[in-house]
């Protein structure tokens, strides 16, 4: 939403490496692998954020543009807990998840629930309003100067091939956390009663009521899950890109939304696929083409995918018979 966020390119990955022309094949391969892993790592964070967009869209049929800013709030909470209060990383994360979960539910109750029968446009404008509100509150409380986020992952990671291939602890943790969450979430949606309710509400809200499903509670739960994941995403994002400002959530939020559309909005595996692909494309474009053009390339790919398959890679296109 904001115009002046810190671009991910600024504190980027291996910037300029591609300009050193070294003709050693092994080095090139290792370089590529490093970029790929960094892309997967960034993509995992996008995927976690995209989950929030895609679930809320699928179930509440709205675009929650304030979602990116919940990431920022989550990151600040972790920052306060670790850097100011000296708490261990895991405790800070749990606190941030708890607070963001509550924040998500409160936002839904106050800002969106009263608009359940309003037009999509009214809801969209409200969401933009909530986004600015969160940014402004953060500005008021934390100021506009970037704070330096200390990684919550002290682990230095693994080194292979005599030091040529380094996988950071951040990357390993981000990718694993994302995969575990995806698996748990897909299991949850398929095999539990609240998950079943989510599927029903996303398919047909009125029919869901007739099945005895509490639609308001289901939407609230969806916001809770999405916002809790946003806290995790915020901590992971700032562990890799440590400069934290009130605008930190905007750009990743927009990209994750793009990832959700890319993968097929409303689809959980779609969010994973879209997020990972977006991360990889972004990092590879930065490394091999141009860091300035990277975002343009990402969106160009999105547009091409949507031209070929309007519902996204894994989006459903069901012909309904009436």
């Amino acid at each position: 939403m904001a115009m002046h966020q810190i671009s991910l390119a600024d504190d980027g990955y291996g910037d300029g490496v591609h300009r050193n022309i070294i003709f050693e094949r092994e080095f090139l391969v290792m370089g590529f692998l490093t970029y790929l892993i960094n892309g997967l790592s960034l993509g995992s964070v996008y995927a976690l954020i995209a989950l929030g967009y895609t679930m809320v869209y699928g179930i509440a049929k709205m675009l929650n543009f304030a979602h990116g800013d919940v990431i920022m709030i989550g990151a600040y909470l972790v920052f306060i807990c670790t850097s100011n209060a000296g708490m261990p990383a895991i405790v800070s994360i749990v606190i941030a998840i708890g607070c963001c979960t509550a924040l998500g539910m409160i936002i839904e109750k106050i800002a969106y629930a009263p608009l359940r029968k309003a037009t999509n446009l009214a809801v969209l404008i409200t969401a933009i309003g909530v986004s600015y509100f969160l940014q402004n509150v953060a500005l008021l409380v934390f100021g506009s100067n970037p704070v330096s986020f200390t990684s919550i992952i002290p682990w230095k990671g693994l080194t292979f091939a005599g030091g040529q291939l380094k996988i950071t602890g951040n990357a390993i943790i981000a990718i694993s956390v994302c995969l575990v969450i995806m698996i748990v979430l897909m299991w949850f949606v398929k095999n539990t009663k609240p998950g079943q309710a989510m599927r029903a509400v996303s398919e047909d809200r009125d029919a869901a009521v007739l099945m005895g499903i509490n639609v308001n509670a289901t939407i609230s739960l969806t916001f809770a899950i999405g916002s809790g994941l946003a806290a995790i995403a915020g901590a992971l994002l700032c562990s890799s890109y440590p400069s934290l400002t009130p605008y930190t959530g905007s750009m990743p939020g927009i990209k994750a939304f793009t990832a959700a559309v890319f993968g097929g909005i409303g689809s959980i595996p779609g969010a994973l696929l879209g997020g990972l692909l977006l991360g990889i494309i972004e990092i590879l474009a930065k490394a091999y083409i141009s860091s300035e053009l990277a975002d343009a390339i990402v969106f160009a790919v999105l547009i091409i995918v949507l031209l070929v398959k309007p519902s996204g890679i894994l989006g459903k296109q069901i012909k309904e018979k009436v």
Binding site: R199, A200, E203, D204, D206, A207, L210, I318, E320, V322
Partner: peptide, 11 residues
């Protein structure tokens, strides 16, 4: 049983 059936099409 609602008007227009309203089955969940994607399930």
């Amino acid at each position: 049983v609602p008007e227009g059936r309203r089955v969940f099409p994607g399930l």
